[in-house]
């Protein structure tokens, strides 16, 4: 009974609050970045941007093809991981049914078999990504706590979702698993804008942002000199 009430709550107000938090938070990132890009471009002394190069680098990384050039296994794993976690939540038939019931919108769904396969792949990929992070000396040394934990947190809704759909494998009650599934999904909405998961909206802008940083405003140097009272200071 309790789970029922909690579930109602998680599927209702908490879901909508989480979704709003995510959309607004990511919207804020996008707004700050776009505004930063426009401002940098306006201030740049030289406005010639190597557009082809920037677009090509952006696309290569957006579709992760560049990532296969070194550390192939890691690259492949992250590629598979991203494909699964993007496709399943949006195109799962069960989720689309909920959207249709809630706001009357629907779109084509993935076949259930494929969704199940991608769900399993997502969980395995998440775990192996953490293992790879530990195994590779470089990433192990750099990693913060969130870097180890985040893939696992992302994997929870997938693992629980699988168990919800496959009662034979589920050691707990259906209600409890559904509760965990919705809870972890809601949690992600809140985490996305405030963790590195925000790269989902920041990534497309990063190449142009890097390029523009090299396009100095025409008097940026002398202005810094004046601001620091060093304009006439001998070298």
């Amino acid at each position: 009974m309790t789970f029922d009430i909690l579930l109602q709550w998680l599927r209702g107000p908490v879901f909508w609050a989480g979704l709003a938090f995510m959309v607004l938070g990511l919207g804020r990132h996008v707004a700050i970045t776009v505004w930063g890009i426009i401002r940098s471009y306006r201030r740049a002394g030289d406005k010639t941007i190597p557009t082809r190069q920037v677009v090509s680098a952006t696309l290569r990384w957006l579709f992760l093809t560049q990532g296969l050039k070194n550390r192939l296994l890691y690259g492949l794993n992250t590629l598979i991981f991203h494909i699964s976690i993007i496709l399943v939540p949006i195109f799962l038939a069960g989720h689309i049914a909920l959207w249709e019931r809630g706001i009357g919108l629907s779109w084509p769904a993935l076949p259930n078999g494929l969704s199940t396969a991608l769900t399993i792949i997502a969980v395995i990929a998440a775990v192996t990504i953490v293992i790879q992070r530990v195994v590779f000396r470089e990433s192990r040394r750099l990693s913060r706590f969130q870097d180890f934990v985040m893939p696992l947190i992302v994997a929870i809704p997938f693992a629980t979702g699988f168990l919800v759909m496959h009662p034979a494998w589920n050691p707990f009650s259906h209600q409890f698993m559904l509760f965990l599934h919705v809870l972890s999904g809601d949690l992600l909405f809140f985490l996305i804008p405030i963790t590195k998961l925000s790269h989902m909206v920041l990534l497309p802008g990063t190449q142009i942002v890097s390029e523009l940083a090299w396009h100095f405003p025409s008097e940026s140097g002398s202005r810094v000199g004046e601001a620091l009272g060093k304009a006439n200071e001998p070298i």
Binding site: G36, S139, D147, K196, T206, L212, A213, F216, S220, R223
Partner: peptide, 19 residues
Amino acid sequence: HGNYGVALETYTRLSTKCG
């Protein structure tokens, strides 16, 4: 006075420390 701000803002948010 420079154009470095938006780059730092973006980098600090999305760095994933993949190595």
